[in-house]
Design a protein around this nucleic acid. Sequence first.
DNA 1: CTGTATCCAGGGGGATACTG
DNA 2: CAGTATCCCCCTGGATACAG
Lengths: 114, 114
Amino acid sequence: MEKKKNEIIKHGANECPITATISVIGGKWKPPIVWLLLKGPMRYGALSKTMPEMSLKVLSKQLKELEADGIITRKVYPETPPRVEYSLTEKGAALRPALTLLSEWSETYILANN
Amino acid sequence: MEKKKNEIIKHGANECPITATISVIGGKWKPPIVWLLLKGPMRYGALSKTMPEMSLKVLSKQLKELEADGIITRKVYPETPPRVEYSLTEKGAALRPALTLLSEWSETYILANN
DNA sequence: CTGTATCCAGGGGGATACTG
DNA sequence: CAGTATCCCCCTGGATACAG
């Protein structure tokens, strides 16, 4: 059940750097996840509760991929009941400026236009 | 053959503004397309030639979606043979700062890390 | 509480041939 | 030159049940 982790680019022709980034944060639920984690670490259950429309399987998968891509870290506290906390790595936190601009763009050109 | 144009957000729960933007520029070939058009208008054939791995159907589709979302404009010159030029709208050009940061992030954290 | 396993549907994207 | 039409495959994501 090997996964290919971060496939990255491979456009052959043009090597678009944006595609590389999108392939990392472009999953359906990855933007919200990263967006939430920018405000601070969160537990698995809290993430799920905040985004109830996302199934658990998908949440797990996206978290794994984000972890594999070095965007987030997973910290397990050996307690009962178990506690798992997700937080951004330095690499992940470095996305903040870009994501902020992306957010502002949507506020200006999408939300405002409707 | 009605398409739903820009579906936009609809996460119900969290309304992530980044998801809104990703849904607009997040197609597999949309980033390269927009990235190219940031340098100036391009013809259909030129786009196809620059990205040979993208099938014509997909190019047409992505262009239509980008146009429907107001990112690009399509200008037809009534000549023989036909000439069609695609260029960014103001809205599309406004993505430049965000895309630049996205690009820089990938240069720093992906390309450099390999 | 934090996941994994299984099954399944929908859509995006690819190859190719054809059209104005 | 600039597309459209058709067929098909794969992958993402969803629902549900089960496990550590």
